[in-house]
């Protein structure tokens, strides 16, 4: 009565077969396409101040213009690059740290594990966003790179904890002992035998981290703690809020970047939903 894993269907195919994951992939894929094609599809340069200031939406400026006379739609299109870059880079860095710490902690036992676990638990309970704010307050250069580093330093703990417990569960499997009997090296056991069995968990933690990073970056920039000269959804919201865009009736200026953030977030969440189902078939509705 063993459930034979259906290996005929590849993970991507499985993801595609779930409507939520499929929708998520379409949304995220759409944003990636927009980011890549930004120079061609954006009607104007996002930094050009050649237009009338604070114009309402019109056929020339579908989403209006900013307080400096920049085209909001062009900013929205170019801004997707920042969010996706931060999501991919910080998500990747966070996942990398989480894998290193989680795998090391789970594979080694004894005091190294204890010390790393203590570090992880501490990092988990220290509130990340306030720490980000404090760190960014002291750092003189404000840029996307700094934000990515700060996000990575504060965001890895949850992933590390989840990966460690999975590692502990997998390393006690007989097939790991069995690989030692085949004469495999530690590195090969970790990367060839154990890691492939953790892919869905790693994918989930990457997407969770990417989403957290995208929202964190937008939050920091919205508060004005990033570099306000960079074109991103967060800074768009910062300028819109500072120019009282809502009160002056320029709802599109605030509405659009927020909706883009939310949509990207939903897309990632939907993919994660599908990954969850693959790694845990019980969740299948």
């Amino acid at each position: 009565m063993k459930t034979v894993i259906d290996s005929v269907l590849s993970p991507i195919g499985l993801l595609w077969s779930n409507w939520r994951a499929r929708l998520g992939m379409v949304i995220v894929g759409g944003f990636i396409l927009i980011a890549i094609l930004a120079p061609w599809i954006a009607p104007y340069s996002p930094t050009s101040q050649a237009f009338g200031r604070m114009l309402p939406p019109s056929s020339a400026h579908l989403l209006g213009t900013t307080q400096l006379g920049q085209d909001v739609l062009s900013q929205l299109i170019w801004g997707s690059r920042t969010s996706l870059l931060v999501g991919a880079a910080a998500g990747g860095l966070v996942t990398f740290i989480a894998i290193v710490i989680g795998l090391l902690s789970g594979f080694l036992q004894g005091w190294i594990d204890d010390a790393l676990m203590l570090l992880t638990n501490v990092a988990l309970v220290i509130p990340g966003f306030p720490l980000m704010i404090v760190l960014s307050a002291y750092i003189p250069v404000h840029g996307v790179g700094v934000i990515i580093v700060v996000l990575s330093v504060t965001g890895w703990a949850w992933g590390a904890r989840v990966l460690r417990s999975q590692m502990i569960s997998l390393r006690s499997r007989d097939y790991v002992a069995s690989a030692e009997f085949s004469g495999e090296s530690v590195l090969r056991i970790v990367f060839r035998e154990i890691l492939p069995n953790m892919t869905s968990l790693i994918a989930a933690s990457f997407m969770g981290a990417a989403m957290g990073a995208i929202l964190g970056e937008a939050g920091l920039e919205f508060l004005g703690f990033g570099n306000p000269q960079v074109v991103s959804w967060g800074t768009m919201l910062y300028w819109a809020e500072n120019s009282s865009a809502l009160i002056s009736g320029q709802w599109a200026w605030i509405f659009a970047p927020g909706l883009a953030l939310a949509l990207l977030g939903v897309g990632i969440a939907f993919i994660n939903f599908g990954v969850d189902i693959i790694s845990n078939p019980k969740l299948e509705a």
Partner: peptide, 24 residues
């Protein structure tokens, strides 16, 4: 060498039979 109790636990489900036997 060792033969384990549960054969499914002793074989990595991601690997093929050929790979498993080739490694030693």
């Amino acid at each position: 060498q060792m033969v384990f109790q549960d054969p499914f636990a002793a074989l990595n489900p991601m690997n093929t039979v050929g790979y498993t036997l080739l490694r030693p």
